[in-house]
Design a protein around this nucleic acid. Structure first.
Lengths: 229, 229
DNA sequence: CAGTATCCCTTATGATACTG
DNA sequence: CAGTATCATAAGGGATACTG
């Protein structure tokens, strides 16, 4: 049953929002991700079929608009006013999640960690001129998938799962959890470094610059000290 | 895939909360509904099997406690501290739902409307001594299921789908939407009455008392005037 | 009564192939 | 590339029967 039959506002909202992937997609749209492919890239594990279905449902529910992309092909998926108004819901949900749901190994897909970095936390204005290619080694993982590349570029950065063909400027040996906690504002880069969880190899200037290319996470302020899980 | 693989707090929270029925069940538990049967009654359409599964998941996620019911048989399902802390999430979600999701006919199961009345909005302290039996006729509906009974009693009220065997003290002809909107604080009883959507037959004193047995809805203050759906 | 195990079916979803 | 239609499959969920 897709319908709860309840007039309660929580039930009405849940009919639309409490579906698999829906909130993830909406989070990204609200964060400025507006194209089909970019949404797909940000959610590995979500099939394009299902993404298409969800976007349809959100449009019919009046939460997003779908309009042809003026520049380039395809559509643009943008929040309606109702969609924008989901901000407080996202904030409440994320605040709760950060406080109460422990960061478990299954939350630490390194590809997602790097994608998030590039999409959410990277401050392109702080990047140096030109292209910086960084290889990330995740030593804790099985050999398959323990190496990823990031291409940092003011005009658009991206994550590659295979050698991108450009020479590596830096190599970073890093624990996926440390990287995630750094993004979340739980630890500083220096703390990760001192704990031996982050190690950067390459030109010292560039190595020192890497952690400065970031914006502050919106979740950093949440106090999980009170948590008793 | 049950897991999003994402460290983002919204994703972590969604893994647990964004499942079918989960928020409905949690809403009820947070509202003081603590037994299996009462939870099942409050969610027609939810099978006991699934309810059982969801309660299990919520316990494992640390959102509720399950403990033997000291009085009576069965268990008590109560919020943990993490569960209590969902209050703001529920509030944000309900506020959004009330503002943006129109009350459609499929939200107006009259059984649910009456159940909600009895469970959420009824102020037992204001009930008169003894038992008051009220039949509700929902004239807009097909013959099947258009009559329901409520037994109002200080020691516990309930909804019956068949004639409960007690003589009716009042008969109410009512539009399900009007009743729901009254509960939500969108209209007053008098407005519903004047619009011909609520009609009470029976002793005038009792008829006048009926709408005074209520508590104020928590959603009443939400301004949907700005909504543009 | 208060659940839970089992079985079976429906629905949801992923893979693939396809189209503008 | 940006999706969408089709189909096979897996997962989710309901009915029933069962247990303390």
């Amino acid at each position: 049953m897709r319908n709860y039959g309840q007039y309660c506002p929580i039930a009405r909202a849940s009919e639309i929002l409490a579906e698999r992937w829906t909130l993830i997609i909406l989070r990204d749209i609200l964060n400025g991700v507006h194209t089909f492919s970019a949404l797909a890239d940000g959610a590995p594990g979500l099939s394009r079929t299902l993404l298409s279905t969800r976007l349809d449902q959100l449009q019919r529910a009046g939460v997003i608009d779908i309009s042809p992309n003026p520049s380039g092909r395809g559509n643009l998926y943008t929040p309606t006013e109702a969609g924008h108004d989901l901000g407080p819901v996202m904030l409440a949900l994320g605040t709760w999640g950060e406080r109460w749901i422990e960061l478990a190994p299954e939350h630490l897909d390194p590809g997602v960690v790097l994608e998030s970095w590039v999409r959410q936390y990277l401050d392109h204005d702080r990047l140096p001129e030109g292209r910086v290619v960084v290889r990330f080694d995740f030593p804790k993982l099985a050999v398959k998938g323990n190496q990823l590349w990031c291409i940092f570029d003011r005009s658009g950065s991206e994550v590659c799962r295979t050698y991108p063909g450009f020479e590596e400027d830096l190599v970073v040996r890093v624990d996926a959890r440390a990287l995630a906690e750094w993004h979340l504002g739980k630890i500083t880069w220096g703390q990760g470094h001192d704990a031996g969880l982050i190690e950067v190899m390459g030109p010292p200037g560039l190595a020192a610059a890497l952690p400065t290319w970031n914006k502050q996470s919106g979740w950093a302020h949440i106090d999980i000290g009170e948590r008793r899980t």
